[in-house]
């Protein structure tokens, strides 16, 4: 597999080039995010934690990563 071949995706609205064989789990590890405290949506659909490893990135995917912040 050509690991150097990259695809363009959006992460929280920002364009990024990532290896084409990456899963969401790879992305979370790369960003040093604790997957236990976030929720990830791919193209507006929530991807549950157990599916991060088997959900692979495709060109043009919109990934959004959310966490809890202070609120009332």
């Amino acid at each position: 597999m050509d690991k150097l071949h990259k695809i363009e995706i959006q992460i929280n609205g920002e364009s990024q080039w990532l290896p084409q064989d990456w899963s969401l789990q790879d992305l979370v590890s790369e960003l040093k995010i604790n997957p236990q405290q976030v929720a990830i949506a791919k193209n507006l659909e929530v991807i549950v934690r157990s599916q991060l490893k088997t959900t692979f990135l495709k060109p043009g995917d919109q990934i959004e990563i959310f966490h809890a912040v202070g609120g009332g």
Partner: peptide, 16 residues
Amino acid sequence: VAIRRIDLKAPPQESM
């Protein structure tokens, strides 16, 4: 608590 996008540009902060 509220749910918001993580700011990936901000330096890592301790979670609230």
